[in-house]
Design a protein around this nucleic acid. Structure first.
Length: 844
RNA sequence: GGGCGAUUAGCUCAGUUGGUUAGAGCACUUGCCUUACAAGCAAGGGGUCGGGAGUUCGAGUCUCUCAUCGCCCACCA
């Protein structure tokens, strides 16, 4: 016997281990059609947050659904070394111990990183288990294992040989804290208070100066020109003359370049080719010298004279003082402008001239756009709009900086000796030195859908069977970081897209709509919710409370109401199990009206749920189930079944409906459905996980009976309403006229006792009547206080409705143009309303 | 500057190719311990679907426009 209350801790205990022991999560049944999902690998040293919990719930639902439909499902788990994020954490930890990364040396430092990975790597696996995820752990991968490293090397070498990867001295985004280059995607722009510093630049040999405005005065040490727009009449005469950079007193040319915007600031712009991406381009066009004025920690270098070794911000302050003193500062105009910060270390990014490795993007972006136009090859995005966003990104693509001056990662397979350069995994021989840099962590992630399957391994059988994968799910925040890059890399190396469907979900927000973050202290841990409400409740809540692609505000009240729903399921199951214990053999020979009704509703529900599951509309499938279970099954069918619980047919219907409900809920709520399923007296498999998903069966539909009981239940509601409104008690006498078939249903639903029934009409009582096509019922009791107001307002409402409908049906356009069944429904409805109106008028 | 999304009940949100009276959870009112469940049951109240215009027999849904909030990209001397 089940407990009276659902206890998620009891229910969830031990089940995951059992599934693992039985190897239900393992793929490989060749007799079945393959279906594959690759889990987006979380940061190995991170924690599972609610966003992950959402993401993995979606995937597990799809995996379990497909498995129950008879697919050979591979859901491959893995973790990411997350180069910069992990390295930053290890550096911070060492710092606390008073150890400097560079003193430790590369090899020792990597040992520390591996230790860290071992220590924290288990956390993630534990949290996957808590969520009940049906991952095939025998295929688990890590972005630094040989599957990934081999693939990265193979891909790099191929791209290098094709000329898709090149080395160049460019302005990149430099993180002076982590001392590494970043890709554009790793820079976050934030509005920051700053100022325009207007500085006097004297024209050579004159006492005239130009007002040059800059937000970064300290970069003047690197100025090698001042530019004006060639069309700017104010300065035309100065083009070709020289100007003197203040403080350093360097003589530089005044050049004409369209980069200078006539309407912006003073129209004069200083050019610092080594410290600004636009200036770099200008410098390139005009063949200007590039003077680097900072070191890799964003401290000033020897080019800056007395400011040498000073921090960039301190230098700015001191330099402005000096400019003031020397009367070179015209004014300081405070502004708010957006400034780039490093995604990981949160320090202000410095545009920095350095030698880096890049992936040439133009051709691959064009190919991606082309492939997206091919119906058979494209990735289907859910929701669709993300395809457009991706194409826009591809249209304005720029080259991808892939080298990172870090140690934790996959090293670039390039070797140098005496100015020569060779691409190779192993050292080409004596005296060759490998490039010091590692690759952007996203370079390995981009290959993930096929590297994990053994694309670069001798045994590529998994790759052959499961690639391309069927389904990918991820948040929109990594659309450009990851989805985009997986697509072009996969297209480059396999000529096809890495997945057929790509489900994009939003971000989890706090209840007030703000981002969940450590600093705000409003974060919610999934493990906390699992503890409090169970994994089943968390999974169902996350996947049924928003539409695809939109953010979700986390609301613990809804978690609680999800728990209530499971408790409802639990108790309905309790009721069914209590009453079918002795069911030996299923039998449906004696179907009553309510049996046909619930079986038809069930059949419709199966159809609807499957339709939505197939479209990955998990919220719609979920709410269809919710309504069916709570309203149709619990509130109506179970109540009606109570009068015939000894009947084998009733028992069978209860079992059948419950079994189907459990199966359809299983992808959402694996634990509780497994628990209840295990107690069913008759079932088709040892675990619900490996049972088959309910199928729509058109022979199981009794449309007429369904309609009839729907009407009867409407009557029941109306009669209950009449009773409530008029205070009709259990002691009232009742005259009941209805058909034989419906009598017991009405009696049951309205809880009419035999002794209340009378045949004559008592003269001294007041009467209350309700009549429809199926029933004519009158209640008699003393002391009538007619609720005239209520009756009148009801009549008024009805009259309005009738008028509206009559007008509609009088409209020839409507009658001729609208579909026949819609018009027919209106006619029927009108008839019913008119009958009801007559009735109400009589009562008044 | 370019683009995307949101705006529906007091709150948080669903709403499929345009088609009966726009739904749910929570909150609210009234009455019930009816032996599956009081974390429940029964009956209710509450919405001119952000504003305006258009297409249509018919618009929460399609088109245009305005507003507010949010996000992404680009620029940022």
């Amino acid at each position: 016997m089940l407990d009276k209350k659902y206890n998620h801790k009891e229910v969830e205990k031990g089940k995951y281990k059992k599934w693992l022991d039985k190897e239900y999560f393992k793929c490989g049944d060749k007799s079945k059609e393959p279906f594959s999902i690759i889990l987006p690998p979380p940061n190995v040293t991170g924690k599972l947050h609610l966003g992950h919990a959402w993401d993995v719930s979606i995937q597990d639902i799809v995996a379990r659904y497909k498995r129950m439909q008879g697919f050979d499902v591979l859901w491959l788990p893995g973790t990411d070394h997350a180069a910069i994020a992990t390295e930053a954490k290890v550096v911070a930890k060492l710092k606390k111990e008073g150890i400097n990364k560079y003193d430790l040396g590369r090899e020792k430092f990597l040992e520390k990183c591996w230790e860290w990975t071992e220590e924290y790597g288990g956390n993630i696996r534990e949290e996957w288990a808590n969520m009940g995820l049906s991952l095939d752990y025998s295929k688990e991968r890590f972005t630094l294992d040989e599957y990934s490293v081999n693939a990265v090397n193979k891909a790099f070498i191929e791209m290098y040989n094709k000329g898709l990867i090149y080395r160049g001295k460019r302005i990149i985004n430099w993180d002076p804290e982590a001392k590494t280059a970043l890709s554009n995607e790793e820079v976050i722009y934030k509005d920051t208070k700053g100022a325009f510093y207007h500085i006097k630049y004297f024209i050579e040999g004159t006492k005239d100066y130009l007002d040059v405005a800059t937000t970064r005065p300290e970069t003047l040490f690197g100025d090698t020109a001042v530019a004006v727009n060639p069309k700017d009449d104010r300065y035309k005469h100065l083009i070709g003359k020289n100007i003197i950079v203040p403080i350093v007193n360097r003589v530089v040319p005044i050049i004409a370049d369209s980069h200078a915007d006539i309407d912006k600031g003073t129209g004069v712009v200083k050019i610092t080719p080594a410290h600004d991406p636009n200036d770099f381009e200008v410098g390139f066009r005009h063949n200007l010298e590039q003077i680097v004025i900072m070191d890799e920690t964003a401290h000033m270098n020897e080019e800056t004279g007395k400011y040498n070794k000073m921090d960039r911000f301190e230098c700015r302050e001191k330099l402005v003082e000096e400019l003031k003193e020397k009367d070179l500062l015209i004014k300081i105009e405070e502004i708010t402008h957006s400034v780039g910060y490093s995604e990981r270390t949160n320090v202000m990014v410095e545009p920095y001239l350095s030698e880096q490795w890049f992936v040439k993007m133009k051709k691959m972006c064009e190919d991606l756009i082309e492939m997206q136009k091919d119906k058979n090859k494209k990735v289907n995005f859910i929701p669709k709009r993300y395809e457009k966003i991706l194409i826009q990104k591809a249209e304005e693509c720029y080259d991808w900086c892939i080298s990172r001056q870090l140690w934790w990662g996959i090293r670039i397979p390039i070797w140098y000796k005496d100015g020569e350069m060779k691409v190779s995994i192993e050292s080409p021989g004596e005296g060759w030195k490998q490039d010091e840099d590692v690759l952007d962590t996203w370079f390995s992630s981009a290959l993930w859908p096929f590297s994990t399957l053994g694309w670069a391994m001798e045994d590529d059988s998994l790759y052959k069977r499961y690639f391309p994968t069927n389904f990918m799910s991820t948040g929109y925040d990594i659309l450009f970081f990851w989805v985009f890059r997986m697509m072009f890399q996969s297209q480059e190396f396999t000529n096809q897209n890495p997945f057929k469907e790509c489900y994009i979900h939003g971000l989890i927000r706090a209840k007030d709509g703000r981002k969940m973050s450590k600093s705000l202290g409003n974060g919610v841990e999934p493990s906390e919710m699992v503890e409090k409400y169970g994994a089943d409740a968390l999974r169902y809540y996350l996947t049924t409370n928003s539409a695809a692609g939109l953010d979700l505000r986390f609301d613990e009240e809804k978690m609680a109401s999800t728990w209530n729903f499971i408790n409802k399921l639990w108790n309905a199951s309790r009721f069914v199990l209590m009453n079918i214990e002795d069911l030996k053999k299923e039998s449906l020979d004696n179907l009553k009206l309510e049996d046909k009704w619930i079986l038809t509703k069930l059949n419709k529900t199966i159809k609807e749920v499957r339709k939505n599951m197939d479209k990955y509309e998990l919220n719609l499938a979920g709410s269809t189930l919710y309504n069916f279970i709570w309203e149709d099954f619990c509130d109506n069918y179970i109540e009606l079944s109570k009068s015939s619980l000894n009947d084998n047919t009733t028992k069978t219907v209860l079992l059948k409906v419950l079994t189907s409900i459990l199966k359809m809920l299983h992808p959402y709520m694996p634990y509780v459905t497994e628990e209840i399923y295990s107690m069913l007296p008759i079932k088709d498999s040892e675990s619900i996980m490996i049972s088959s998903y309910p199928k729509y069966n058109k022979n199981n539909s009794y449309i007429d009976e369904e309609q009839l009981l729907n009407k009867v239940l409407e009557d029941v509601t109306n009669i209950r309403n009449l009773k409530v409104n008029n205070n009709i008690t259990k002691e009232s006498s009742i005259k009941l006229e209805t058909s034989k078939d419906l009598e017991s249903i009405y009696k049951n639903a309205l809880k009419i006792k035999e002794e209340q029934l009378i045949t004559g009409i008592p003269s001294d009582k007041e009467e209350y009547n309700y009549k429809s096509n199926y029933i004519n019922i009158t209640f008699y009791q003393d002391g009538k206080v007619i609720n005239k107001e209520l009756l009148i307002s009801e009549i008024e409402k009805l009259e309005q409705s009738i008028k509206k409908r009559e007008n509609l049906l009088a409209n020839e356009n409507y009658v001729t143009k609208a579909p026949a069944h819609v018009v027919e429904l209106d006619r029927q409805k009108l008839k019913e309303e008119q009958e009801k109106l007559n009735y109400l008028r009589e009562q008044l």
